[in-house]
Design a protein around this nucleic acid. Sequence first.
DNA 1: CCAATCTTCCAAATCGTTTTGGAAGACTGG
DNA 2: CCAGTCTTCCAAAACGATTTGGAAGATTGG
Lengths: 340, 340
Amino acid sequence: MTRLRDLAQELGLSATTVSRALDGYPDVAEATRARVMAAARRVGYLPDPAARRLRRGRADTVAALIPGGPGVELTALLHALGTCSATLAEGGLDLMLVPARDEAEERRRLARLVARREADAFVILRTRREDARVDWLLEQGVPFVTHGRTARAAEHPHIDGDAFAGFRDALRHLAARGHRRIAHVAAPDSFMFGHLRRLGAMAGATEAGIALSLAEATPDAAGGHAAVRRLLQQGPPPTALLCATDAIAIGAAHALREAGLRPGHDVALWGHDNIPAGTFLDPPLASMEIADPDIGAHLARLLLAVLGGADPATLGTVLPLRHIPRASLDATLTTQEETP
Amino acid sequence: MTRLRDLAQELGLSATTVSRALDGYPDVAEATRARVMAAARRVGYLPDPAARRLRRGRADTVAALIPGGPGVELTALLHALGTCSATLAEGGLDLMLVPARDEAEERRRLARLVARREADAFVILRTRREDARVDWLLEQGVPFVTHGRTARAAEHPHIDGDAFAGFRDALRHLAARGHRRIAHVAAPDSFMFGHLRRLGAMAGATEAGIALSLAEATPDAAGGHAAVRRLLQQGPPPTALLCATDAIAIGAAHALREAGLRPGHDVALWGHDNIPAGTFLDPPLASMEIADPDIGAHLARLLLAVLGGADPATLGTVLPLRHIPRASLDATLTTQEETP
DNA sequence: CCAATCTTCCAAATCGTTTTGGAAGACTGG
DNA sequence: CCAGTCTTCCAAAACGATTTGGAAGATTGG
């Protein structure tokens, strides 16, 4: 409502001086600056962002594209983006979320946001191993940060959980408990999270010297259900199912029950994401999650760094996962199941 | 990249004419307009949104504030907002999502978005009965649409499911199946959805001539768990639990099991939201949801109407709910439970 | 005391569009 | 043929900030 000009007039100063006072330029007397700041605060002056963008050529805004489709744990994600937004605000940046229903729409929106200069940097979620968005952004030289790695993770800032170690250790743990017929209900290999969790499970099995069955699922409950149904038709049931996500585990549990197997009794069940309802499922679902309580702030720091000119290639972080054992792991192995 | 001026120069026209040609003004010759449109398409001209906003005084953008905290079914919500965004795009509007961690932050962000004119209209989610955001927006005369009603719903455009009828009919249905000890696990009354679902359940009970127990829960699994624990301590267990949300129902199921009661056997369980995992729970969770498959497009139409100058007070829609019966309803009542 | 330097401020240009208020030429009707 | 009307275009003024390139006065050094 009040413009810079009004404020300047009221203070008997030029718009130039008021602008420079507020922006912290050194060529304005401290007394004047104090007067200007006080007046600005008093009338609640907010610079018009459109005018500022036009002149400055940047938006002071970060955009995060929200993927549609199955397999995105949106609740946790949006929580993180909430704190990301708050942290960015401290650095004078806004966060805008842009929903897209599928990957084609996501690419279109990304191109449009860049062409119209609506955002200075981007958050890319649910990365693929070969990620067209990442390739394009790198090619265009647009700053961005990913949640999840890609084949080119060394070239761009990213933050990710150490899924390989998490799943490898989970498999070790199951093997140590005596499980010998273990299956991994995997998410598609084209998603980086699916790939890494699968590799981790396989590495754990190799270490423990046992075979690992694999069943591939779309990353939602329906996928887990279908995958485990197929798995059970193929041979003797596993005594433990390590699932790529909690949603997959929920579907898997259902398939087990349909086959007369009780999760947490006959078959151990383990997921990932620590969805809020997990504690209240029957049996409570063992899970894992990134140990860091504040991915959002971490993302924001990465964005501020990369916009501040830091070398993107140095800004990768892989955080350890935390295991969350719950009753779904308590499968009682019969003697027959145990190692001789 | 290419500016209006460049395009004009290339065509041997003034910027004025090019601008007016693209905007469909009638004072430009059809032949010229065709030439301009072709050239614009060829070079991929996109008007700079900052310049346009500055001059036009509007952003051609709608903002939706994404509430944090428990009890928001974000998966379904974001799906709807995805189609909302796509529908708005057809009308030349952008949708921007803005996450807020709590209600105080949401009010701050709202005020800031309005003051800086970053959005021309708003989508308000998870309405309260007395909603400070709605009061403020009405007072400011800012266009907006709510998902969910408020005490002042007659004054503002809104879209909502008919929770009253949905829950009343659900209760009728349970009564018709012979249930006589029914409890409603309610969401807080200050949320409009909590209020209406509660009223519906109560009306259904009154109609059926039976008493209804009430247990109030925070709208998440933990809340449902705690509420049903309290309920079971207070007296003989109900034979049916009508829960305000699926998340509450999941917590409720857990509390039942802890008390040795089997949901879907000893106690019927019914939720609302139709969360994706519902089918795969044990037992599969009966639920309900708005019958209309496309709330998002509906929201978008309301926004376009209100921005087009339609009278906000005429733009309220309450859509019927669809019941989704699943095995969690199959409680077998013993003779003792049934009506004499 | 003069010139050089500092400090503090400002007028004007600029960002890229849209809109206002004509202007020039073609056409029409009498 | 002339005045009036239509059609088609455009120059210039916004929109509200930032930035450039000084200018005026105060201070300093010799």
